[in-house]
Design a protein around this nucleic acid. Structure first.
Length: 481
RNA sequence: GGGGCCGUGGUCCAGCUUGGUUUAAGAUUCGCGCUUGGGGUGUGCGAGGUCGUGGGUUCAAAUCCCACCGGCCCCA
């Protein structure tokens, strides 16, 4: 697989085209599957996804979440218990109405999210305060019949995610869990070097059935924001309708309080690609790169043996050190072609080994993010590469946060907001908090109110940009996916 | 929700306006061989298409019409 020379890939000039090329050329995902909104994760892409899952699952389990796997089907009657939840999701539900030739007398649906699958079981499991808190998580696929235009990774009708669900004795404990959920997600996004804004969604945009919703929004090169994860405080809303009660120390029956949070893998992967990639292809953080190092032997006539055997020595040393390494000794390709190929795949470090290195027992190391070359001695190989991994990670992370900083601008008036929205920025505005003013923004400019910073008081600098009344909050406005 | 554009070998595309010299062109890719090898070597031979699907108009459809499927963009 090599990159298409007939096109020039421009991440900033034409993100859509660039991104589609990345998916195809770097074997991330293939959306040519013949059902709209469904696509295939290919080897390189799914390997990255698995590593993200692994980091997330490990952290969740460290924080006391048990791994579980619930069925993909939910019976209609369970789904229809919570009123807001139905309103929010029913238009997007895939129904199973038949089995063979027979019509089912109890229709089933493919989970769009699993609250209504999980709570009937929580009700069975929770009897006393000793059963709380109850925390679980599952990695699974969910199904939503999206009516907006689908895009691979960003918006599909089937998507990969991890969802966590917890039940608690009281609101305070649930609140602490919300914070923990946020910290778990931060841990993963930070490891990927992703920048984000953590917003409390406005009431009109919260998860159907939630008390409030938090969301991690991140920038995208095309000026839209990408929601990569959400955390919801559900209060007693679901507990009430699913009758999640427990007996407390005094022997009285009480309602549990619940939370849930979900991280979309497609979008998290999309952000990783979009934040770090460049016009030569992917640039992967070492922690999730399926291959962290590629060795390219450069055999000259008469010296093939020395070069190849030295390259194998290097390969085995790196493997022993636990570094994921691939040796590209395919003799049909020239070294230059291999450089381009592995740059497309975003492998963090390239090791070049030719007669020069074999003679000197050294290696030439090239880091993917800056293309900077260094030379190291064979004895120092592992340390040098580990050092580069650290440098690459720091660089990617810093660049991502700087870009976010760059994307964030202020606007004092609706006109200014309009013009900055046309520049595809994320704009901070003073807002009175009235939903009508938020809807007015949506009507007038190409973006919408995403919310206000969570746990960080921001003082509005002027009156509400829409109505001119006293502003109570600073709202973040942007185009969305 | 409203409007617009598009679908031709694995990929990018020419051809469509004005139906017929088109055996559907080219590049890339893929296979085999030689050559080459520190940033996309060159070359020879070969492979790959029911022109998205179905229907209609016509002596004749990649080309015109309709429906569906799939993709993209803009606006709300």
């Amino acid at each position: 697989m090599s990159e298409n020379t007939s096109k020039s890939l421009k991440k900033w000039g034409n993100f859509s085209e660039w991104f589609d090329d990345m998916l195809l050329e770097a074997q991330i995902a293939d959306d040519r599957y013949p059902v709209k909104g469904f696509s295939v994760y290919r080897g390189w892409g799914y390997s990255i996804v698995k590593r993200i899952y692994q980091m997330l699952e490990e952290k969740l389990e460290d924080e006391g979440h048990q791994p579980m796997q619930f069925p993909v089907v939910i019976p209609e009657d369970a789904f229809q218990v919570e009123e807001d939840h139905i309103k929010g999701f029913s238009a997007e539900v895939f129904w199973i109405t038949h089995a063979g030739e027979n019509e089912l007398d109890r229709r089933l649906l493919l989970r769009p999210t699993s609250e209504t699958a999980i709570y009937p079981m929580f009700r069975i499991w929770i009897r006393s305060h000793a059963d709380l808190p109850l925390r679980m998580h599952q990695t699974c696929n969910v199904y939503r019949y999206e009516t907006k235009a689908t895009r691979p990774l960003f918006r599909g009708r089937e998507f990969l995610w991890n969802e966590a669900h917890t039940a608690h004795a009281d609101y305070e404990e649930a609140e602490r869990q919300v914070k923990t959920g946020v910290e778990i997600y931060r841990h993963v996004y930070d490891a990927l070097g992703l920048s984000y804004i953590l917003l409390k969604r406005p009431d009109f945009d919260k998860f159907p059935g939630a008390v409030y919703s938090l969301a991690f929004d991140t920038w995208n090169p095309d000026g839209k924001v990408n929601q990569i994860g959400t955390v919801h405080e559900l209060g007693e809303n679901f507990a009430k309708v699913f009758q999640l009660t427990y007996e407390d120390e005094e022997g009285t029956q009480k309602l549990a309080h619940t939370t849930c949070y979900g991280m979309g893998m497609g979008r998290t992967l999309a952000a990783t690609i979009a934040h770090h990639g460049d016009d030569n292809g992917l640039v992967l953080p070492p922690v999730v790169a399926p291959k962290q190092v590629v060795i390219v032997p450069i055999p000259f006539k008469g010296k093939e043996k020395e070069v190849v055997s030295y390259a194998r020595e290097i390969e085995s040393k790196l493997k022993t050190a636990g570094i994921r390494v691939v040796m590209d000794d395919d003799d049909r390709l020239r070294p230059g072609e291999k450089y381009y190929k592995w740059e497309m795949f975003g492998v963090p470090v390239r090791v070049e080994v030719g007669p020069r290195e074999a003679d000197a027992r050294s290696v030439t190391l090239v880091r993917r993010d800056t293309k900077e070359k260094t030379v190291a001695r064979f004895e120092d190989l592992v340390g040098a590469i580990r050092g580069l991994f650290g440098d690459i990670y720091e660089n990617l992370r810093t660049r991502s946060w700087e870009r976010l900083d760059n994307e964030l601008v202020e606007a004092d008036t609706l006109d200014e907001l309009k013009s900055k929205m046309n520049d595809r920025r994320i704009v901070r505005v003073s807002w009175c908090g009235d939903p009508h003013c938020a809807f007015e923004i949506k009507d007038q400019v190409a973006g919408e109110v995403r919310g206000t910073l969570w746990k960080k008081e921001e003082k509005p600098i002027g009156p509400c940009v829409v109505c001119g009344d006293t502003a109570s909050e600073v709202a973040y406005v942007s185009r969305t996916y």
